[in-house]
């Protein structure tokens, strides 16, 4: 299908019309592809992701998801998986309930959601810590749970905002490889913001510098 994936058309981002953060964006990421965006701090990488996710309003231009224009679509209806630098796990919920959160929001029954969450916890290799609280996890483990949580509702696009920058290089490389595999196997379009060249090369099928 020609329209599948994520694309932008003359997308201008920023916080006021008078001060756009970058030249208009025109790119396309098809299912199974990862666009890695490299750039120094403050250049607008995270704002681009926030705009695609619907957190920050579009200044001008358009965002298309599988052919549909989503500029005005509320965040909770865009079906986007978002992973920040901090795992941002919900501290009052168990690991399983964190992962099941999106499924429950999509009206999946509690039992089915928990079964799926358990499968995903196994998939990220953390079945052995399923009874731990969020704050008892290491940085790498919390990052994996955040990934499982983002993937659980089968998002139409995955956005990674420097997801590994707080991790050591070994864990970073391992997780980057796993994410690249996931994006390919699940055929999800992904954008991966980073300032680490090595990480970008591991995950990217296309690259953009800001």
């Amino acid at each position: 299908m020609t329209d599948s994936g994520l694309s932008t058309s003359n997308l201008v981002i920023g916080y006021s019309d008078s001060q756009p953060l970058h030249e208009p964006f025109n790119f396309r990421v098809t299912p199974g592809e990862t666009l890695a965006i490299l750039g120094p701090s403050g250049c607008g990488k995270s704002t681009l992701l926030a705009t695609i996710a619907g957190i920050t309003p579009v200044l001008s231009g358009d965002i298309f998801l599988n052919g549909a224009r989503v500029n005005e679509l509320p965040i909770h209806k865009r079906n986007i998986g978002l992973v920040f630098q901090d795992p941002l796990l919900f501290p009052h919920l168990s690991l399983i309930d964190n992962i099941a959160y999106g499924l429950r929001a999509h009206k999946v029954s509690r039992d089915r959601a928990r079964v799926r969450a358990t499968e995903l916890l196994e998939w990220v290799g953390l079945a052995h810590v399923r009874n731990n609280r969020t704050w008892e996890l290491s940085g790498g483990q919390a990052g994996r749970v955040a990934l499982a949580r983002a993937v659980a509702p089968k998002p139409e696009v995955l956005l990674f905002d420097e997801p590994f920058s707080a991790l050591d290089s070994t864990t970073r490389i391992r997780l980057a490889t796993e994410i690249a595999g996931l994006v390919r196997s699940q055929e999800i379009p992904a954008i991966h913001v980073t300032h680490d060249e090595q990480e970008a090369e591991l995950v990217a099928t296309q690259m953009m510098r800001m």
């Binding site: 996710a53 965040i75 909770h76 999106g102 929001a105 949580r149 983002a150």
Partner: peptide, 27 residues
Amino acid sequence: LDPRHINVAQTLGANPFRVFRTLTLPN
């Protein structure tokens, strides 16, 4: 409370009321 938690919950499909009930209020 970190508003990014709310952003994450919204991207997972939670509407504003659900976000308040399941995330803000418990916290």
